[in-house]
Nucleic acid binder design. Structure first.
Lengths: 247, 247
DNA sequence: CGGAGCCTTGAGATTTATCAAGGGTAGTGG
DNA sequence: CCACTACCCTTGATAAATCTCAAGGCTCCG
């Protein structure tokens, strides 16, 4: 589908169905310019900082998070391999939240003007960036709905579903098993629950043979039923604009 | 600050500090082209629909919302007078959520290509649209943090704070009193709580002399203390890019 | 005058949090 | 090779926040 091009990376953008093979190569080339490793639990961009780069996640998992003065912390979204974030970093000014690594990560730092220039010259790339933003918005909306109206059990199931579909899109979940390197404490911060309660709910999902999760490996045993538990529909990921939708 | 221009509307965009007076007039002119009235509780754009216009709220309050198959409903964000939403509606495809009116509303429907053309010709307008998106993202993030880690009382206080600052930006809250035409049931859908519990928490805030709220009118009696209760900081509204920041 | 919609109150049930402790495992240094 | 530490997962008991169900009252409008 992407042709025989020798792409070195697996950007999410490559999944966007409007791109030509040549567009993918252009994006791929950007990612070689400047890379950075981040240790687990370290910030990629801190609150209050003025960010200078557009970031592409090459390896590892990160998150956006918000921390209140009293120390309470909430994850706002997951940043998975292939993701890019803050494509229009020029408008950001001071960060109103932090971006951190959950595992060891490698990210590509792209100079915003270079990406903008690329988008100006190649309408399809501009559209791919729009699409990516649109999906990010959709994901935020679904998290609001998750926290606002789903039970603990449903929230956790939803997160598993989301990760599964997102990783599949970037070719990191060929079968029913994918990486899931978060701790239960991370999961608690993502779902607005306590670690203790997450533990109990995860065990429930295991007992019902919906998932297996040990170490960094997650297996979805019954995707249909898990989606049903979570009231998950992938609509908000807008996969219809994706090459995967064709296959 | 906006000069002596005869602007007919009060778009949020006018607050963006990068605009010239002439830019404001151009935007203002867009809003005359095509307007639509929406009855309270009706959809402006329904889930599953393919939206055709960029919308500007001229009067009344609306919301984005997500409804699960079983009927549970969560508000995702408030749409207040002056707001514009889905400025890049071209990428949307099928709506993954609904947009509805909470009160009677008047919206301007702008043809996306016309707005895009304007943004292409006037860099400042493009930046204003970016800024608006950026604030929308920030608001979604803050709602996630609200639902994930704040108590019922804090969430309600936060919503009052947010509305107060947003309305002030568009000149609809000159003093301590502003419109707040939601029902307690709406507030419950926004905060992920039950109407009964919202009622009790609102009474608590009233008893503590933090707010007065009766009918459609909200008065903030002690803004500092209310912000403190809510752990509210306006950072996510990015008012620093705003003419209000100067004054 | 009657109804509809909204707000309010009470009592009891449920979900989730809190506190506290124990166990497994992997890595580290002696 | 063993002990030790750190980190994570697990379990139990109890407490707190929020929900559910039910009913009554107010106000506005036809």
């Amino acid at each position: 589908m992407t042709g025989g091009q020798a792409l070195r990376y697996r950007s999410r953008l490559f999944a966007y169905s409007g791109l030509h093979a040549a567009d993918r190569v252009l994006i791929d080339d950007l990612l070689d310019q400047r890379q950075r490793s981040i240790a687990p639990r370290r910030d990629i961009v801190s609150e209050g900082e003025v960010p200078r780069f557009v970031h592409f996640v090459l390896e590892g998992w990160g998150c956006r998070y918000r921390q209140l003065p009293d120390g309470r912390r909430q994850l706002l979204s997951l940043l998975l391999p292939g993701d890019l974030f803050d494509s229009h970093v020029q408008v950001v000014g001071r960060m109103d939240h932090g971006i951190g690594a959950l595992t060891a990560m490698t990210v590509a730092e792209v100079v915003p003007d270079v990406l903008s220039a690329l988008a100006d010259d190649h309408a399809a790339i501009a559209r791919a960036l729009w699409w990516n933003d649109h999906v990010a918005f959709g994901t935020h909306r679904e998290w609001i709905a998750s926290l606002g109206l789903r039970s603990a059990r449903e929230r956790i199931a939803l997160l598993f579903c989301e990760v599964y579909f997102r990783l599949r899109l970037v070719g990191r979940c060929p079968a029913r098993t994918c990486e899931f390197p978060l701790t239960q404490a991370d999961l608690a911060e993502a779902t607005g629950l306590t670690p203790v309660h997450v533990n109990r709910m995860v065990q429930e999902l295991r007992r019902e043979r919906l998932i297996e999760w040990a170490g960094r490996s997650l297996t979805i045993l019954d995707l249909d039923r898990l989606c049903q538990v979570a009231s998950f529909t992938p609509a908000y990921l807008h996969l219809d604009r994706t090459v995967a939708a064709a296959g």
